[in-house]
Amino acid sequence: MKSCIACGMPMTQIADYPLYDISKNYCKYCAHADGSMKNFEEKLDCLTKHYINFHKMDHIIAKQTAYVVLKKLPAWKRK
């Protein structure tokens, strides 16, 4: 089973891949409509909003948490 290099989501079904392309190593949530991978800033913003909306976190804490989580993933380790 693959995990998304950009968010860590397990990709267990073909529908989890961008444009159903199983050769990609990132999920549909980390892809633009054309199938290209979103950049770090886009993922940071998305995850920050997720933490604010679903975990009721303060914006500053949500952004710091998102940054720490993302930096541990293969796509963002060297950035």
Rank of each mutant, 00 (worst) to 15 (best):
46 C>V: 15
65 T>D: 07
45 D>W: 12
51 Y>W: 07
68 V>G: 05
26 Y>E: 03
31 A>L: 05
48 T>V: 14
79 K>D: 04
60 I>W: 07
25 N>A: 07
68 V>Q: 14
50 H>A: 13
54 F>G: 01
21 D>E: 06
18 P>A: 07
24 K>L: 00
51 Y>M: 04
20 Y>Q: 15
79 K>F: 10
72 K>F: 10
66 A>W: 03
50 H>W: 13
45 D>Q: 14
39 N>V: 05
7 C>Y: 06
39 N>Q: 08
30 C>W: 02
70 L>M: 09
10 P>W: 07
39 N>L: 03
42 E>N: 11
46 C>Y: 13
23 S>E: 00
43 K>Q: 14
69 V>P: 01
29 Y>N: 10
5 I>N: 01
4 C>L: 12
31 A>E: 03
53 N>P: 03
44 L>E: 10
41 E>H: 13
27 C>I: 07
74 P>K: 03
67 Y>C: 02
14 I>A: 01
15 A>H: 01
20 Y>N: 15
4 C>R: 03
40 F>L: 08
69 V>G: 00
50 H>C: 13
20 Y>D: 14
65 T>M: 06
70 L>G: 04
32 H>M: 08
45 D>Y: 14
3 S>P: 10
26 Y>D: 06
24 K>S: 04
43 K>G: 05
77 K>Y: 00
10 P>K: 10
30 C>I: 00
61 I>R: 14
20 Y>C: 11
71 K>V: 13
34 D>T: 02
4 C>T: 05
32 H>Y: 00
33 A>S: 11
